[in-house]
Design a protein around this nucleic acid. Structure first.
Length: 324
DNA sequence: CGCTGTCAAGACGAA
DNA sequence: TTCGTCTTGACAGCG
């Protein structure tokens, strides 16, 4: 058996790097309060530039800590898809910064991706919502291509709402999928959610439409048909066969029994190790996205715990093998 | 400086 | 049908 390489990543922002927010914003309300529209757009553009530049600072911080897996904030360009700013070329002011960002990620072999906000709902019965969802996905597509990063399998989505009937709504995802432009389809991965669509539903859609399945262990514990997920692990792996990327997972711990679905500050290392042992050897590499309130600090704390465990062999500060 | 309220989006359940 | 809640980080404004 070949041991699996586990690589750790984190989400969007750092609690260590000062003044490095990649999601500074300007609300539509603020925007519309400007007397001078040109000045308002200028302000938007400088916020966007600062956001993208801060992403590069974050990647440099990641490099210094051996972190090669990172989720970019979806809020890099405020109001990019807002109806009132139709016609605004929101890429132009950040094009150079996007190129620098993508170039750095490429030179340092970093995996970067997105998790668009839950307002992207592909199984919606409402045409307007589907339309704005496409617009938002196209925004992500433009960000990626302007970074010169291949858009393939870079955006994690959920199946969507339950509406009047879960079964009908799952089928509506399949129907609506055929309206999604092919270049957008290629960007997408699907993740099990914590309220409606569990891993079996996700696998149904993924196998039918040839989409990689991102398994979220925390969501699974909150929402499942059958608690034992390991039986489905091979199916999950198989959805990644056609992907250029390693299998991707989401790891987080519940905040409390009462607030089970909310993310805790950090990740429980025992739970994580137990998971790692169960899947060790099943595939060459698994990229584990740490979703915790303390962001990169949660990753550092997890690594500290891993290092003190004799079964763990660290490769660097953010990846490891389990000893056979 | 720290706290509270506001902002934005779509789903959804209560009234 | 309308309204409050969920969720998240940013940030205006208050004391």
């Amino acid at each position: 058996m070949t041991n699996t390489l586990f690589r750790l990543g984190y989400v969007a922002m750092s609690v260590h790097l000062k003044n490095s927010s990649p999601s500074q914003t300007m609300t539509y309300k603020r925007y519309s309060q400007f007397d001078d529209e040109e000045a308002a757009v200028h302000k938007l553009e400088s916020v966007a530039q600062s956001n993208v530049q801060n992403c590069l600072r974050l990647l440099k911080h990641n490099k210094a800590n051996d972190i090669h897996f990172f989720r970019l904030s979806s809020r890099l360009v405020p109001l990019a898809t807002h109806e009132a700013l139709k016609g605004w070329d929101y890429i132009k002011p950040v094009k150079k910064d996007l190129e620098d960002l993508g170039d750095f990620a490429d030179r340092n072999q970093m995996r970067i991706d997105f998790h668009p906000d839950h307002f992207v709902v592909l199984n919606t019965p409402r045409k307007e919502v589907l339309k704005t969802s496409f617009l938002t996905l196209d925004y992500h597509y433009k960000l990626l291509t302007n970074m010169n990063v291949s858009p393939r399998h870079r955006c994690v989505l959920h199946l969507g709402g339950k509406y009047e009937s879960k079964e009908d709504s799952l089928e509506r995802f399949i129907t609506n999928w055929s309206y999604v432009p092919e270049r957008i389809q290629e960007m997408i991965m699907l993740e099990n959610d914590d309220k409606t669509y569990h891993i079996h539903d996700v696998l149904y859609a993924c196998e039918k439409l040839n989409i990689p399945a991102v398994f979220d262990l925390h969501h699974h514990l909150a929402n499942h048909e059958q608690e034992n997920w390991i039986k489905e692990w091979d199916r999950i792996l198989n959805t990644w066969n056609a992907s250029p990327h390693a299998v991707k997972m989401h790891i987080s711990s519940p905040k409390s029994k009462k607030q089970f679905r909310a993310h805790a500050d950090t990740v429980d290392s025992d739970m994580f190790l137990q998971f790692a042992k169960e899947v060790n050897g099943s595939t060459g590499q698994i990229d584990c996205m740490i979703e915790a309130k303390k962001k990169d600090e949660a990753l550092f704390q997890l690594v500290k715990d891993l290092k003190s465990n004799p079964e763990v062999e660290m490769v660097d500060e953010a990846s490891f093998y389990l000893k056979a």
